[in-house]
C-alpha cells in the first residue's frame, strides 16, 4: 500500500518536474497564430482595418476582437485564406476592393513640407525639408496614408499598369457556343 503510494508520488514528482522543465525549456515566445495571420496580411501597414499596422490587426484577430473582413488591400482572397486558417465563415469585405495602386507625387506642386514622409509607414518617400519629395515606387505599398497629410494635394493614387514583367497568363476561358 505504502509502496504503491510512494511509487505514484514518485511518478507524480518526476513527471511534474519533467513537465515543469519542458514548459520553461520549450516556451513559445509570442503567439504563433498571430504570426500565421500576419503572414496572410498584405503588410501595407495602411490602418484601414482600424488598427495601427498589420501586426496589431493580426493580434486582434487572434484575440477574437476583430473580424477577418476588415482588410481591403488583402481583398477577398485574403479573407478566404484567413477563414481557412481560423476555421471561420467567409464574409464579404467591409470596404470595396481596389486594384493595387501606388502613390505618385506631382513634383511640380510639392512644397517640401515632409508631412508625407512622416506619414509613410514603410519609408518609401524620399525628400527633405523645402526639397522636392518623390515616391520610391518599388517600395510603395499603396496604403494611401500620405494622401491626406499633403497640404497642397499633390499626391495621387494610381493603379499599377500592366507591363511585360508583371503580365500573367489568363485563366483559360472558352466560349461554349459562339453566337452565330
Amino acid at each position: 500500500m505504502i509502496t504503491a503510494l510512494a511509487i505514484m508520488a514518485l511518478g507524480a514528482i518526476v513527471l511534474g518536474a519533467a513537465l515543469g522543465y519542458a514548459s520553461i525549456r520549450f516556451k513559445v515566445e509570442g503567439d504563433p497564430l498571430v504570426e500565421k495571420i500576419e503572414a496572410i496580411l498584405p503588410q501595407t501597414q495602411c490602418g484601414q482595418c482600424g488598427y495601427p499596422g498589420c501586426k496589431p490587426y493580426a493580434a486582434a484577430i487572434s484575440a477574437g476582437e476583430a473580424d477577418i473582413n476588415l482588410c481591403p488591400p488583402g481583398g477577398m482572397d485574403g479573407v478566404r485564406k484567413l477563414a481557412d486558417l481560423l476555421g471561420r465563415e467567409v464574409k464579404p469585405l467591409e470596404a470595396e476592393e481596389k486594384p493595387k495602386q501606388i502613390a505618385i507625387i506631382d513634383e511640380q506642386t510639392c512644397i517640401g513640407c515632409t508631412l508625407c514622409i512622416q506619414a509613410c509607414p514603410v519609408d518609401a518617400i524620399l525628400g527633405a525639408a523645402k526639397q522636392m519629395h518623390t515616391i520610391i515606387e518599388p517600395l510603395c505599398t499603396g496604403c494611401e496614408l500620405c494622401v491626406k497629410p499633403c497640404p497642397v494635394e499633390c499626391i495621387s493614387m494610381q493603379p499599377i499598369a500592366e507591363n511585360i514583367d508583371n503580365w500573367k497568363w489568363k485563366y483559360p476561358v472558352f466560349e461554349i457556343k459562339r453566337a452565330a
Binding site: 500576419e38 496580411l41 498584405p42 503588410q43 501595407t44 501597414q45 499596422g53 498589420c54 509607414p121 514603410v122 519609408d123 518609401a124 518599388p138 517600395l139 505599398t141 508583371n166
Partner: peptide, 17 residues
C-alpha cells in the same frame, strides 16, 4: 513577388517603428 514585397514592407515598417 507579392510575398517578397510584403516581407520587405514589413521589415521596413518594423525598422521605421
Amino acid at each position: 513577388r507579392e510575398k517578397q514585397a510584403a516581407d520587405a514592407a514589413k521589415e521596413r515598417f518594423e525598422l521605421r517603428n
